[in-house]
């Protein structure tokens, strides 16, 4: 265990965290606005990866696959929110259970359409090289992941803090009833946020597909990790999601490298403790 080990593990942890930020930020915003836990969020991640695969197989273009997959899944999320979740009104438990029902449906649909095989999404050659920084080889693709997450994070932050729409979203997170009272269309906000969450999760699926692979069961593997991000960071907080993602990414990597036998325990036990002490998460608003 020399310096190299620590640098590489930290780098891997940060890049994994970047991926988790994409999945977790959407989940966090959805919780903030609608007060529901979207248990089909992992399915959006997986389906995003599958749609991207189809686009790559038919057109051969990885660059095209990213927006097509993300937008397709955003539409799927939008339809789900409008047709099924919205009519239930404000009933979080039933909405949560409904999202599980959909997660099972999506699982079977994915199995039927894309078979049960493991696939890899191959990024363009330009991104498969490594760069050398101070004698350490860093895969360019992971650098790209960190860059994408940073860019998305900045755009989201600007949208939330500087636009009228963002202000309306923040108002809804703080107090939906008051927001409605002052004329914010919270129904439209939740539709928009749900679609955005699905968009981000699918984006994560396409980008993460290159190094996680795309296979049945990935949906329920990524879901608890996304939860850890949301809970540690605080529900409904974008900055919290960023910090949460970074912490979970690092904890996961170092946990697996240092204490392989209890690695998941070291991830989820702190999550449970944080929830018990501060139910809204470390940076969540009361």
């Amino acid at each position: 265990m020399n310096w190299n080990f620590w640098i590489i593990q930290t780098f891997n942890g940060v890049s994994y965290g970047a991926l988790l930020f994409l999945v977790g930020s959407g989940l966090s915003l959805i919780f903030g606005v609608m007060r529901i836990v979207n248990l089909s969020h992992g399915s959006y991640f997986l389906l995003g990866g599958y749609v991207a695969l189809t686009v790559i197989w038919t057109t051969g273009s990885w660059l095209l696959a990213i927006p097509v997959a993300a937008l397709t899944i955003a539409l799927l999320g939008l339809a789900m929110e409008r047709v099924f979740l919205r009519p239930l009104g404000f009933d979080p438990l039933r909405q949560v259970l409904l999202t599980v029902g959909f997660a099972f449906l999506f699982q079977q649909a994915a199995l039927d359409i894309w078979t049960g095989n493991n696939f890899d999404i191959n990024p363009p050659d330009a991104l498969t090289k490594s760069i050398v920084v101070g004698g350490v080889y860093l895969p360019l693709y992971r650098v790209f992941m960190i860059g994408t997450a940073l860019a998305i994070g900045v755009v989201l932050w600007l949208a939330m803090e500087k636009t009228r729409m963002g202000a309306a979203v923040r108002a809804t997170v703080d107090d939906a009833q008051m927001a409605r009272g002052v004329g914010v269309d919270t129904s439209r906000i939740s539709m928009f946020i749900f679609a955005l969450g699905a968009f981000l999760a699918a984006l994560g699926g396409v980008i993460g597909g290159a190094f996680l692979g795309i296979y049945p069961g990935l949906d329920f593997e990524i879901l608890p990790l996304a939860f850890a991000v949301v809970i540690i960071g605080g529900m409904g907080s974008l900055g919290g999601a960023a910090i949460g993602a970074l912490l979970v990414g690092l904890a996961d990597n170092f946990g697996k490298a240092l204490f392989p036998e209890i690695s998941y325990f070291t991830l989820y036990a702190p999550m449970a403790l944080i929830l018990a002490v501060k139910p809204t998460g470390l940076f969540g608003r009361e």
Partner: peptide, 29 residues
């Protein structure tokens, strides 16, 4: 001791996290 402090959706999530702790041990130990 941890979970009973929460209620509603928060209870849902904390029991999820605790369940994942057990899963993690079963899977990795």
């Amino acid at each position: 001791l941890l979970a009973i402090r929460a209620s509603g959706v928060y209870f849902l999530m904390i029991t999820l996290a605790l369940g994942q702790c057990v899963w993690g041990l079963a899977y990795r130990w």
